[in-house]
Design a protein around this nucleic acid. Sequence first.
DNA 1: CGCCTTTGACCGGCGC
DNA 2: GCGCCGGTCAAAGGCG
Length: 395
Amino acid sequence: MKNLNLSPSALEEVPVNPKWKRKSSNLTDGNEDNEELNNKGLSLALDCKFEPDSTVTMKNPSSENSFDDEEPKEEEATETCPPSKMLRTTISSGDEVLQQTQTKKTRVSVRTRCDTPTMNDGCQWRKYGQKIAKGNPCPRAYYRCTVSPTCPVRKQVQRCAEDMSILITTYEGTHNHPLPLSATAMASTTSAAASMLQSRSSSSQPGLGTSVSAPASISPTNGLNFTVSQNNAMRPQQFYFPNSSISTSNSHPTITLDLTAPTSTSHFNRFPCAPRYSPTCLNFSSSSSSTSLDSNSTMQTLWNPGYSTYGALSHSRNNNGSLNNIGKHPPQDHLYQPQMQMNSQTAATSQQSLTETIAAATKVIALDPNFRSALAAAITTFVGNGVVGLEKILV
DNA sequence: CGCCTTTGACCGGCGC
DNA sequence: GCGCCGGTCAAAGGCG
């Protein structure tokens, strides 16, 4: 069995620019906290496990095709594979597909409406390149996470060619360091989504006590449906991610979380009350430790589409969403959260997991109720009142 | 002065 | 083998 354990030691594959080390030294304040968190096992690093012996692979030709037909934008925006590539993937033997999955990093692409160059996800990024991608006049910017000099996480930011107001942020890799609370919303969600994507190739995850009981599927309404069960004692949890997709590119399996306003009313049929969120900068900040998803205020602070407390702090000289003063303890940053917000129903279960071992909680962060809550947060932030509908879906 | 962004060059993968 | 393209590097310049 091969595990792609994204522990810090396993993440040395990314060359480290010496400059980052200098930079990291400036983050001592934050890192000290991080180290403390590490001791507490509160790292957001995920165990991304792949099960070679799994009979479930990434391929899902019918659903992918159906999706691609309905949302062609994804191709140019998130490097979704062209038909030829997809064919190459889908016709490959299971071993080959799996091999590719193991050797290629999973990407999580988030489509949002954002007026600013990048959305503020609470993490600290350094731009290291910019390219004009084919098929899109808007340049694609490349960022590295600079919170930790060894952090392998990278993100690509690009405007949608069809709609300049849509910002496509693609995350790759998993943070190998604790994040400030303000960054955990996005990090957890993307990591969870990536893990979910990877879980599609795994029918079970021994040791985690969590399994994806059914492979994710693409709903007729361009949404992601997938079910996660835990410990067999927990009721299977079904997720629905509207406007989202999974793409198994030959190079990078990508999951796309489309958080933009519905381009088609059918996309949000499950969220009839969904308001059109503010087209302002996304702010993946959170100052809340609420345990209820039913609270609109909670969701408004988590992945707040408007400017909240953290957003005001982060508008420094680089408006790319990075946090120059990340180590200066924004009001809520000291409140590191091992868990994302969760609804009351899942709180008990997740807390039980936490009490077992924090390490285990870290591992299951993606497939645990955290996953649920993180994704729920993402959804509910943008659908606002739709949280009720989401709750129904999740239950 | 240190750190950042910018930007052209370079490299590797992939398709033809 | 060649060219295209995505991704990365690194020098140069700007900013606080």
